[in-house]
Design a protein around this nucleic acid. Structure first.
Lengths: 273, 273
DNA sequence: GTGAAAGCGCTAACAG
DNA sequence: CTGTTAGCGCTTTCAC
């Protein structure tokens, strides 16, 4: 590996100067600069970010913890994050926790020991004790799409789950349907809980009594949507409408519905969150 | 930040011993081990991967360069890669190049200077001169889904684009259709070129003469599928069938088709590569 | 405008 | 079974 020392020797200057040329962090004469740049070119030198980070305490990395990378919604989020970061010279670590609390903990440990300058997390369940370490170390943390208990100090980006869900279900009711089966997400997540709450609010505002046979809990993954939809369809009194609380479970449900030989009406086919 | 030295002091041993306890890289008496572990616990010590990497020349990181993270296909690939890596104690860097050669180059530079132990790339176009550096440095590189000119030394994972495409189009011909419009991908990519070749082979095997008005080149992104499908549909003699060469362009094409008030037959709605 | 030297937190000879 | 010591490649004070 060619180091800053090699460049220094090749250019006939000190390592210090090479460093300053690379970082532009103090003025260097045109000549020296040229010599150094030529040496860098000749040797194909590339700065070692690891060494730099150790010394400067800045890694220019950000970690992203996601509960489900397969979900296209998060894939798009990831893309946006990466794009912004890249522009600013940061590189992104990505970890998928697969909705597993233990993996989540390991992910946090990994990011901490890698000295990330910041972290973004889409948690899979309730909060996580270890998240506090980010606070202690003054590492910015952003919670995305899911809140965590006891982490009110962290910046949080949420959508209006309750309101959106309520309006959605109210719209269905306004169309005249009454038996709406909901495939909810895990109640340990903000999105799972709040979307169900929205559903319940809609029931209330239409004075429709709650029927627990119409409420089933999935895990936000495709397979659970499939399984629960089958349940619904094979029950003695199936719902008129199935409301799947996220995109993946919706796809699963649609598969089940089609298998049963029932047509899925057009226009109700896409969901984005 | 609490370092190995702090732990050593707290435990009343030398930093060396702490290091050996952490890494289990030489035998330590039960007692000392206990003392060290307790000190680690008390101080909330976490090893600094950066320092470790600088010394040991191993970062336990792998970089993934992808031309389009928004594409759900690559999102799934990403997830699989991350899962395997995670299991082995590696952490993944992810960079999206947005089909841009310059961004690709910057991505390569970033990964190299971050000293990744290995890299995986889904290139956006023709190869890239800088890829050679991985070879020079003996950093394993895997090319995914797209080949690169002059990088035959790198391990490569491909699908049978030509064969699959040919069989697909032959099937359509066997159904009696003759005018099949193709929305191909960029001819600078393996997938773009080979899938078009498969289409042309199918023409040949059915002795159908090539009609260049039925061949249009997109960029694998949704919008290009939309635009080209509109082109097809508003031409004097539109194709009977539209073959979009990847999932995203297919979605775009379907949108265009629906907008034109044409029904998309069921069963032809999904594509996975 | 330039250089010498210390040290970031850790590992790994080498020595006992 | 344990410790001393010398760096890994870089940045940054301090001195000239």
């Amino acid at each position: 590996m060619v180091t800053i020392k090699d460049v220094a020797r090749e250019a006939g200057v000190s390592p210090t100067t090479v460093s300053y040329v690379i970082n532009g962090t103090r003025s260097v004469s045109k000549e020296t600069q040229a010599k150094v740049l030529r040496a860098i070119e000749r040797l194909g030198y590339r700065p070692n970010t690891i060494a730099r980070s150790l010394r400067s305490k800045k890694t220019y990395t950000v970690g992203l913890i996601v509960c489900d990378l397969k979900n296209p919604f998060f894939a798009e989020v990831l893309q946006g994050i990466e794009e912004q970061l890249n522009e600013k010279g940061y590189t992104l670590f990505v970890v998928d926790t697969n909705y597993d609390a233990e993996e989540e903990e390991r992910a946090i440990e990994a990011l901490l020991s890698r000295q990330v300058d910041g972290a973004i997390a889409v948690l899979g369940g309730e909060g996580n004790r270890n998240l506090k370490t980010f606070q202690e170390r003054n590492i910015p943390l952003v919670l995305l799409d899911k809140r965590a208990q006891g982490e009110e100090w962290a910046d949080t980006v949420l959508v209006d789950n309750r309101g959106g869900s309520r309006r959605l279900v109210e719209y269905i009711f306004s169309l005249g349907y009454r038996r709406v089966g909901i495939i909810a997400g895990p109640l340990t997540t903000t999105t799972g809980r709040e979307r169900l709450e929205g559903y319940l609010e809609a029931l209330q505002s239409f004075s429709i009594s709650r029927d627990d046979r119409l409420i089933k809990i999935g895990d936000f993954r495709r397979e659970s949507g499939y399984r629960i939809a089958l349940d619904f369809l094979s029950s003695p009194s199936p719902p008129e409408v199935i409301y799947a609380c996220n995109n993946l479970m919706c796809l699963g449900a649609m598969e089940a519905i089609r298998e049963k030989g029932i047509r899925v009406p057009r226009g109700n086919r896409s969901s984005s969150f």
